[in-house]
Amino acid sequence: MTKTRFGFVFSAMAFGYAFLYLPILSLVAYSFNESKLVTVWGGFSTKWYGEMFQNETLIHAALQSLKVAALSASVSLILGTLASVAIVRFGPFFGRSILQGVLAAPLVMPEVLLGITMLMLFVAMDQVIGWPDARGLLTISIAHITFSVAYVFVVVQSRLRAFDRSLEEAALDLGARPLQVFVQITLPLIAPALVSGWLLAFTLSLDDLVIASFTSGPGSTTLPMVVFSSVRLGVNPQINALATILLLLVVASVWIANRLIRTTRN
């Protein structure tokens, strides 16, 4: 009886993982296909990679996206960490549960809602205080920071809740100032959460199409915007090549992260 049930769970898992990975693997396979048609194998070729790196629009947009992602990940890391400290450590204060709700809300907000509200804000601010008079990388970054704070907050606060506070208390007893304790003890202890929060914010920003489309202006086109307008017209082997490179980067960073965790544990 137990055996047949495990058989069911096992086949359901196999199906689930196949469902998750076959589409991604198909992109990798097509990226090396000489032919542009997905049903014809024209032989192994790396020509789409060459064409992709020659594609100036794509490369320019990728660089813009990297700038936005680095800036918004860094700022949202700071804001999200401050918010986590306030929520986890300050005890009850007025408006705590409202702040908690507001901090987590962007996690589940549909992107079109976030995008349109951000744009309306920028336009209204321009009317009232004359800033920002043009939309571009800065407005995209502000929008990305606002939703990324939620992700950083969730990751960092769960780490803050979980760890042993006795080290902090010992340092305080020995006369260290609160700020000193935070920098020398708390920060190193929550460092893994900070790294994953930053990476999460970076990835989300790099991948966002909808919010960037609402908050960008002329001349500031991010990578997802270029990818979207290209795939709307159909299959494009250069995008397959881009997907493969992206996948490779992600697998490599996960592998490195795992190695690091294992070596620090040993």
Binding site: P23, D207, V235, L242, A243
Partner: peptide, 19 residues
């Protein structure tokens, strides 16, 4: 892992499979 790769590109992958 799929969560860390591009959402847009994962949706796009289905165009090549479904058309």
């Amino acid at each position: 892992l799929p969560f860390w790769t591009s959402f847009l590109i994962r949706v796009y992958a289905w165009i090549g499979l479904l058309k």
